[in-house]
């Protein structure tokens, strides 16, 4: 368990400590005639920081969605080499002696290749966020299913799943990600995913998801266990509602809040994880940009090209910070008891 794990766990840890809106509380509030979601929205609107990071996240998402389209129509150009903008004799540094910033290349050009940095960061965000989001979805879905099953079926199933959870949590995740990469990318390729980056990306998504779900499964299991005993479930049961109805109509709606908050906190952890794995040599490789492989390359320019050194790092930091703050904000909004 080292830094990536910690990154992952940091999200999970905070979620665990203070998440879990009291279902009872939401019920009480409903009496006033406003739904919990309306309440949350009202609370969010008063939270300036969260509103700002929400805007940043929204912008990042829009940019990430648009980047591939803009690349295709030629507004962004992440892959064309510009040998005329770099100096082959200085190791390919931008010709202007700085980062090569200009109107055409607002964030400069990449040393060694002359590719446009802004385009690469934008498209890098697309790939990094796709990887992180896919892994988050797997984490949340798998965690929810396992948590629900354990919590609802109880008994041996619960014991069995809980032990699996304990075990997966005991694996040194970073090491597993690194050590399994060779073989499992091979398996993924043999299973029909195109070789190269599609397989590399799929590997990261799968393995982050497969090692990430236990924490959320624990949370959901705990929620289910406590909800099961609540009055409104008992009421539903005594009214003759079917089990199926109880699961989907009564239980699931009460799990949305923790899932949303947890998902928001897992996302930045996975963005960091992608970067860390790139540094260790696992993951999507250039020329396909990701924030991770951009940063892995740019740290080499710490002394020679400050802007190129900083931009990818700042891009990652803004994303990670925004998602983390958004998660906090959502938690506060969805859980009125949480103290800020």
């Amino acid at each position: 368990m080292s830094e990536i794990k910690r990154d992952v766990e940091f999200g999970a840890g905070t979620a665990q400590e203070t998440l879990a809106p009291e279902p009872g509380a939401t019920q009480e509030k409903a009496i006033t005639g406003r739904t919990p979601w309306q309440l949350a929205r009202a609370r969010l609107r008063r939270d300036k920081i969260t509103m700002v990071v929400l805007a940043v996240v929204a912008l990042a998402i829009v940019l990430a969605i648009l980047a591939p389209i803009l690349s295709i129509i030629g507004v962004l150009d992440p892959e064309t080499f510009h040998p005329e903008l770099i100096d082959g004799n200085t190791g390919g540094l931008p010709l202007d002696g700085g980062g090569g910033l200009s109107l055409q290349h607002p964030l400069g050009v990449e040393p060694g290749t002359g590719r446009d940095v802004l385009s690469r960061i934008a498209l890098g965000m697309t790939f990094s966020m796709t990887v992180a989001l896919s892994a988050t979805l797997i984490t949340v879905v798998l965690g929810t299913v396992m948590g629900l099953v354990a919590g609802l079926l109880g008994g041996k199933t619960d014991f069995f799943i809980s032990r699996i959870i304990d075990m997966v949590l005991s694996f040194p995740v970073t090491l597993m990600l690194l050590a399994l990469s060779g073989m499992f990318i091979d398996i993924i390729t043999k299973a029909g995913v195109p070789a190269g980056n599609p397989s590399n990306g799929a590997y990261i998504v799968l393995v982050l998801g497969l090692f990430g779900w236990p924490t959320i499964a624990r949370i959901i299991r705990g929620q289910v266990l406590s909800l099961r005993e609540r009055e409104f479930i008992e009421a539903a049961r005594s009214l003759g509602a079917s089990n199926r109805r109880i699961y989907f109509k009564e239980l699931l709606p009460n799990l949305w809040a923790p899932l949303l908050v947890y998902g928001t906190l897992v996302m930045p952890a996975y963005i960091s994880a992608e970067a860390a794995l790139s540094f260790l040599g696992v993951g999507i490789k250039p020329p396909t940009p990701t924030l991770g492989n951009l940063l892995t390359y740019s740290v080499n320019y710490a002394a020679a090209d400050v802007t190129f050194f900083l931009f990818p790092a700042i891009a990652i930091a803004i994303l990670v910070l925004s998602f983390n703050l958004m998660g906090d904000g959502l938690r506060d909004a969805l859980d009125p008891k949480a103290d800020r």
Binding site: P83, G88, G91, G92
Partner: peptide, 13 residues
Amino acid sequence: KTAYITALGGDKA
């Protein structure tokens, strides 16, 4: 070859 060498680090590489 020129682009290849530039990517390697130029004429010193």
